[in-house]
Design a protein around this nucleic acid. Structure first.
Lengths: 364, 364
DNA sequence: AGGTGAAATGTGTGCGCACACATTCTAAAG
DNA sequence: CTTTAGAATGTGTGCGCACACATTTCACCT
């Protein structure tokens, strides 16, 4: 095997030697710890400028014998398979970090994704426990703003995922551009469809005006047709009661309302609608969200045609890793990490499944 | 900040204490270095069984003062934008590893992707340099088999990407399932199209019988229609001369041959065809491969409708990281890492672009 | 000149592992 | 009973960094 001593990497020791001071002084300059004379600081800075020092991130974490305590503030995974996947993503990120000797104390604070008050209570708990970092899916705009203000003031770093709240001033947002997501849904629902078709946007089981993310998707959906001067008709429906019988009734009513060419469901609950629709009129194209087991069944059976994958698992996993990168490796975190809008069809769904999980490496 | 001493992680030292032997003995047992009495070995093994020891991968690399020399055997990036992206992926992987203090000597051996002999020569060079690991895109089946045999015998680990050669007995393959890729292309080209349509498969600028990957895609394409008992007609064309004039001629001939509803181009060269077709008959749907600049232009202008992203950048990056995981971290590498088949449309193409590159973390 | 305190600077240690090397044990030979 | 090779076992060191702590420097005062 061909091997040779590594000549490349520059250590603090090298900088110290080059600038004629001790390692301690270099360390103080590098970290702005003060207690350095102007003269010494200059010497070190000059050397730093001429060579390109990149600290060894691995060595940096070595001496860390402290445990960071992080809290994930997300909807209760037991209430929704979507959030179940998100939960698994955090677990998976945790496990990966353990492999590298990084033991995080990850705690959870769950809330009911349909209840604003539940979120508020959970957020309060999180703040009182004063963690070292927070990963949060801020589903409720107004309820979350004061929480973020508190965190900021307490200098507790936090990362948003799933729903972007720009004013939060978070360390980073990880998720998708929901407006573009709506654009894409519109494209998928209308490909190969005749002019003058009618499409429906259906929101299921949510407090629509308070749910920015759903509104954003619909905006994108409508924008697609408007900006292309298309002659299609778009209708919006909100379904709240998901009890089987009244639900079936409302779905049937939608179909009687107009002859639809396609339906766009803005949540991961498309599987509740698809089979009903399909029985009545199998030619209606249905576009939904997420690789939930039930949705994939519909894809396979042909009662649903497209899914847009929000990849909650990877979002959460990345969120946790970003927090670790920030706290332990002191890496710079990009403030925005937008995921691609993944299109799932009956033909490629299987390739997304085998791919989830087995992410074995050293990178995002 | 809430912190506390880490109680969790078990070190070699702990195992040594628990089993009443020294760290050295534990180390010898862990790595099968021999020179351990049966009695001691048993004591250690018993402890190992009861506790779940996971070595700290970071600490493992710390003492490594050797440089591993890796060689990437890929088509010349200057000859093709697709391979340019692959090249960038390797570079990016390298940079990421440097951040963690891992300095790899990555060398390159390029070949002409259209010339078998060029591959053979480059492969020979690689073998003679006796690297510590190889990352290779084995475009030519028969030419690569003896190369892999040599590597195996010399116990040089190698990873395949882009094209899978099962018999190679590689450490791992990273890429896509090309048969399924053909399935997907068929689905995309036929969605919303009337029954009894005619579709064309077009191979561009390749030695078809020698190019397993293209044949596999066509098989998948045809299989889709056959297995669904569809009444469509499929035609195959091979275009070799890409000089503007004769090329335009052959494309026009294809269109005169039959009234086509859609065309599937099996390489990343769809951009050569799309504008020509679009001018003659803009209703023909075109499905191609890869986020090459030229292809994306066609998407935006509407002369192309779907791309399947093979993600050469991430394939190559993962390949390099897998090699590092194997050599440095001694992680187990999954023998097959199949990428999802990503569907690109005019509406989601931008989300794939911003996403490339800014992969900042500690994981795949 | 000697003393003093704060500022500046330097030194030492540990993180967990791999591996080189030193030491101890054991059994057979003398 | 001693010697000795060879096996078995134990100890020490370095990787690069962060941080605690020890030491030096120096201006200023008595």
């Amino acid at each position: 095997m061909v091997k040779k001593l590594n000549p490349k990497n520059i250590r603090i020791k090298d900088i110290a030697k080059k600038s004629g001071v001790s390692e301690g002084t270099v360390d103080r300059v590098l970290h702005n710890r003060g207690k350095v004379s102007v003269k010494s600081a200059d010497k070190v800075k000059r050397v730093l400028k001429e060579i390109n020092y990149t600290p060894n991130l691995i060595a940096r974490t070595l001496g860390k014998n402290k445990n960071y305590r992080l809290v994930a503030l997300t909807p209760d995974p037991n209430l929704d398979p979507y959030w179940q996947q998100s939960f698994e993503g955090i677990k998976s990120g945790e496990a990966q970090l353990v492999q590298f000797g990084i033991h995080l104390d990850v705690e959870y604070s769950f809330f009911d994704p349909t209840k604003k008050e539940s979120f508020q209570k959970a957020a309060l708990d999180v703040f009182h426990s004063q963690p070292d970092g927070v990963l949060v899916a801020p589903l409720f705009y107004y309820a979350s703003i004061p929480f973020f203000k508190e965190l900021s003031e307490a200098r507790i770093p936090f990362i948003l995922f799933n729903t972007h709240i720009v004013e939060a001033n978070a360390l980073s947002f990880i998720g998708q551009d929901l407006f573009k997501s709506g654009n894409l849904a519109a494209e998928l629902v209308s490909i190969g469809q005749p002019a003058n078709s009618t499409f429906a946007v259906v929101h299921i089981n949510e407090d629509l005006p308070n749910s920015v993310h759903l509104v954003e998707k619909e905006k994108g959906f409508r924008d697609y047709f408007v900006s292309r001067g298309n002659s299609h008709t778009i209708k919006t429906y909100v379904l709240n009661n998901t009890e089987p019988l009244p639900f079936q009734d409302s779905v049937t009513k939608i179909l009687h309302d107009a002859w639809l060419a396609g339906i766009f469901i803005t949540t991961s609950k498309a599987y509740l609608i698809a089979p009903i629709i399909n029985k009545i009129n199998p030619s209606i194209r249905i576009v939904g969200y997420d690789l939930i087991k039930e949705n994939m069944e519909c894809l396979k059976h042909g009662s649903m045609h497209f899914l847009i994958n929000q990849n909650p698992m990877r979002q959460a996993k990345l969120g946790l890793q970003a927090l670790a990168n920030h706290l332990l490796f002191k890496k710079k975190i990009p403030p925005l990490h937008l995921f691609p809008l993944e299109i799932i069809t009956p033909q490629n769904v299987s390739t997304y499944l085998s791919h989830e999980g087995n992410l074995a490496g050293i990178t995002v």
